[in-house]
Write a protein that binds this DNA or RNA. Structure first.
Lengths: 199, 199, 199, 199
DNA sequence: CATGAATGAGAGTTCATTCAT
DNA sequence: CATGAATGAACTCTCATTCAT
């Protein structure tokens, strides 16, 4: 992600920085942001705490960087969505792409979902909220009946739920993803039809 | 127990334990468990930190007590659900009751949802997980097609989403609740019919 | 020990006070003075901490009372010793009596020996030191050669050691006491003879 | 390692760990382990409490480190003693060496003797007990008559007593040491002869 | 690039003690 | 005689952060 062809200098340079990000995300996702200390991250990497400060000015900046790096695909998705007509087909395509984006940034999203209270107070809190609202705005028609709006929200949450709750439902991982996506698609379709009838 | 007719002093003195719980829940829900210090709770109540320790042995015990006190309705619901036949009507009734239970314990549930990473490490983590699994087990038929199982899970998550995300959707609070419940009911109905067709 | 024939009122009255002393001494001896909290003592007795304060003004007063009650025999011994001629036979008799006094107040002495640093800062510290010096003064002749003085001190310490270190030497308890006393007596005898020769 | 020729700054900066140990031992020996707080130690060194934690993970680790560093000579003595024949001459040599080892680690031993109750609960408690038992085992013949065993124990305790009690006996420090050692040697000699007669 | 050493602030927790009831 | 409720001071320990080297 953001890795250019040329690697020599970047690898040397970017290596530690990236390793910090990797370890930090893993620990943040596992234990939460507050309970993960810089000491712990440093120990996992076999460097000193002070070394972290060479690469990131504060603890907060570590997860800010993670957020920015890993949610780029969703940012792209939103931009793309904005330029599309608000048809059912568009919404289906958004769901498909969003589903994939989630898979790509799973640990971050798990972290964000499980540490909402913390995230809210961090600098990324607003960015995240904005992003979610943007996504909602290209996904939900504010003039549609309330029930149909709920169906759309439900569709998105179904995708989220798919990431975490589904883990302890038995079955092939691939098949579960498909099932989740199918339910979400159905919900949007129903929302679309429901809105039609009203209008 | 030294209870005088007049209530003013009683209120100040007699129910500190409850007041601790109230303030703690409020702050936990707002800022998260880790970021809420006992000093802060004590200051809100105008007592010393040590006073908290007269009523609760540890910080953790405060939220444990909240959890136990406030999730009793859901415990009851699960017990009731177990004794019912696994019909569609039962599931609808469960959704209705669960929806109400959520409203009653909203701050706690908001807290649990927004501090999952923290909760997981606390003593209530397992209790919560167990409770959720029990609920799922009386709600989902493991022999049904995967898609229909997902629909059921989605129904429950729709209720959860209803509590938080819906807050910034415009509309009358009462009506939103109804809409959320309707979507959830629909999902379960569809799941039921889908399962029929297969079998 | 200070218990009169009549017991009714004294027992009621003295009962709790004495029970506090008993439990306190046991815990002090086992864990040390600092590590034993009043909460712990109260819990062992199934009363509240505040109850302890009815019987003793402070924590320190508890061990002061123990000290005063239990070292009376030694106080008596010292007084008796003072009125006797400084003969070898007197010293032997002192050893015999001291040995017995130690047995009677074993837990207290164990406590005093194992918490010297603490005791020193307590009010009993000086009292104890005084008592020990008094004992030494009737036991040691300051004009005797240094080696003989050491022998006398060694005799007394042999009795002390007998209480604690001997516990994990195998053998009948009674016999061990006798052996300890014998060694101590020997040391004093030698000291006496050594002093003679010099003089 | 950044060691400059000049020593002044080095002394301030470079050997904080050692300075902590020195001050800690001094205070522990004077006031006891429990009554000595890390704040106090830090203040004596003119650093913050947190600085102590850079050098030692816990308060306990401070005295563990002291114990390990300062009892090495005794450890060596035990090892040496094990390889020697159990003759009287060996025992005399052990006493001589032990006497010297005690002088070298006087504050630590004073601490251990005056804080036995505390030490027992610390990690060094067992290590100390083991060490003492090992010493006893190379010093005492378990088949000897009880009285002779007591004489040996008494000899060792005489050395211990020599460290503390003798402080307030008047006389030249050097001479006192010699007198103490002489009494201890005598006791062992007598024990040896006593055992002979029996066997 | 990275370390060693340190700090200031604050956390949760425990303690001896007090006092109205 | 004893309790319930509370306090103030202290404790051990952890954290994010800084900076000279």
């Amino acid at each position: 992600m953001g890795v250019t062809m040329d690697g020599t200098k970047q690898q040397r340079r970017g290596n530690t920085r990236q390793r910090i990000q990797d370890v930090a995300l893993e620990l943040f996702a596992e234990q939460g942001y507050e309970k993960t200390s810089l000491r712990e991250i440093a120990e996992h990497l076999d460097v000193t705490k002070a070394a972290l400060y060479y690469h990131f000015k504060t603890k907060e900046e570590i997860i800010v960087s993670l957020f920015e790096d890993l949610t780029q695909p969703i940012q792209d998705l939103i931009e793309w969505g904005r330029s599309q007509p608000h048809t059912l087909e568009t919404k289906h395509e958004i769901l498909r792409r969003y589903s994939q984006a989630l898979v790509g940034a799973e640990p971050l999203f798990r972290f964000m979902q499980e540490n909402q209270a913390t995230v809210r107070e961090l600098r990324i809190g607003d960015a995240f909220k904005d992003r979610m609202r943007d996504l909602r705005d290209i996904f939900i028609d504010p003039d549609a009946p309330l029930v149909e709006q709920v169906r759309c929200i439900s569709a998105m949450f179904t995708l989220h739920a798919g990431m975490f709750v589904m883990q302890d439902v038995e079955g092939d991982s691939e098949k579960k993803h498909e099932a989740v996506l199918e339910v979400a698609m159905d919900l949007v379709t129903q929302a679309h039809q429901g809105a039609r009838k009203e209008g």
